[in-house]
Design a protein around this nucleic acid. Structure first.
Lengths: 177, 177, 177, 177
DNA sequence: AATGAATGAGAGTTCATTCAT
DNA sequence: AATGAATGAACTCTCATTCAT
């Protein structure tokens, strides 16, 4: 449910109230419970929704350099434009600490993400570049960028970090556009 | 109160219950309220405690290269050994989104952190290294490392990222030991 | 809610407990909160109920002498038979000291009461009778009668005071029956 | 304790907090409990204090007409100047409904009051004046005057009622001054 | 005589959930 | 498929009282 997603982005899991979700879409609480038997079920649905949206940033065709460029471009866009997705991702990662099922999902996504990046970097053919380590660095940095407080500062930091990515990978600025 | 700190690390703010904090240290809830007039006051105390512990990782003397090495060493240690501090920091950053006061504290700490790192990097004298951008990358990556799910994966990722830091900065492995 | 009214009559606002009100009518506390969002809302409802019942004693038709007789009769009846209403009115007046909204309501009711009485007395056509002052005396005395302790004494005092009212107004005893 | 008296006058028994009473006179709560073993004991002390102050309005010497004049004068003064005493008396009367001991005290005081007034009126030698009934009326009215909401209205009503008293008793205006 | 610290009992309120319709 | 009404469990917070010093 998109309404639940929005509420989590705004107030976190801590502030998720089924009554408010129901009210936001103009239905009765009991009706919400009819579709989602429990709050937990609603949360699971939100998790699935978030994960799916996140996966859609992965490109599937083109040369490694092209794919990397497109991917970085997509991520930077997502970071700047859809703050709510990252807010929810942050909440999910934190919640995963207490929720084994969620932890499993998050770990799996991290692995896929890392493998994909490592693969692309390796196929770039840059000698002296440890694909595994660089992928780890990039993922850590992107995760870190998803924990903003002031949106104003955020934008500058994103540019700086992605500039370093390109520098590390030997990608030209123009390759991103 | 250390007990509250521990509970936040385990269950997040979402799971912080005054009764449990009181029970954890063997006192009555009313007694807890005697020292912390409200739950909010308790949270503020925890925030102060966390910020203070975090600040203590900043080295104050030595050459830039030495300070950077010591700093990275301290951070890596902290990341591996005191997961609870990072867990709480993660919770704090997420909570800052809805708590302007906390957001201000976090932003201030980020600025101090960034300025310190940028300064040290600049004084390293590595041409071709944008101190500002590299500092941003490092901070983002470190923040990202503080969002782990499985502690087992965690350790490997930390090593990988810090190896890249050294590589970026041209610091020798031995300099860290 | 009549149950809340009864509890205030018995134990005063001081002894009003939402849990007990709910228990008295066999519902859950949460259900009570479903109808009255807060204790304050419940109190307001009780106030409205009391004010309405009190207003119903005012007669609307007949000659001035008849109306006065009927009115005095109604009030004496109410004082003797429905002690709970007076008990609640006493609580309300005392509470009005700290509750501006309630004070406004009580003042308004007093004014209406005084104006009505003064009007009726004036139209009685008793020379040498200051309608304004007599009305003030009567209202003060009736209020004073609403502060009883022992119900046994109460009845005698009511008769005495209303006898004086009739004497003052030159109404015959028979006019009341 | 005068501080407790003041708090009851302001906020009623409902708002009486031992902590605030102690704070008002700059002592610790435990110290207050040292002198008054319980809140109930403190309340008893306040009751005694209030009753004593009230008794002091009764005149003891002079002709009946003089005593009545002085008494009415004293009461009118007290009503206008020391609102807190009347506020507390109101609270006491209401509380008496649930407190048999207090009810006994209040009843006793009422009886003494009524007997004294009746006696004075009887000795005035006004034929056609039922001393018992007039005393009841006066006491009821005075009690009623002690339940004000707006102090501004209060003053006018007091004058009106006491004017009626003098009229009833055949006392000249000058006799009051 | 005086106090800081501690406590048990209970207050109003919230919330996910269920029930009857 | 949908809802108003109802509920149990739990929450933070308050307060008179007591304890150790």
């Amino acid at each position: 449910m998109a309404a639940a997603f929005a509420r989590i982005a705004t107030d976190g899991f801590e502030g998720l109230r089924t009554r408010e979700v129901a009210a936001a879409i103009g239905i009765n609480i009991a009706t919400l419970h009819y579709y989602f038997p429990s709050k937990e079920a609603l949360i699971r649905a939100v998790i699935g929704h978030a994960m799916q949206r996140f996966s859609q940033t992965l490109p599937t065709s083109g040369s490694p350099a092209e794919q990397l460029s497109v991917y970085l471009h997509n991520l930077a866009d997502l970071l700047e434009q859809d703050q709510s997705l990252w807010a929810v991702m942050g909440e999910l990662v934190l919640r995963a600490r207490r929720d084994p099922d969620l932890a499993h999902i998050v770990d799996q996504m991290n692995d896929v993400w890392h493998a994909k990046l490592r693969d692309l970097i390796a196929r770039l053919g840059r000698p002296g570049l440890d694909a595994d380590d660089v992928a780890a660095l990039m993922i850590a940095a992107i995760k870190g960028l998803s924990l903003p407080t002031a949106p104003s500062v955020q934008s500058q930091r994103i540019d700086q970090v992605f500039a370093q990515f390109r520098h590390l990978l030997g990608l030209s600025q123009s390759a991103l556009e």
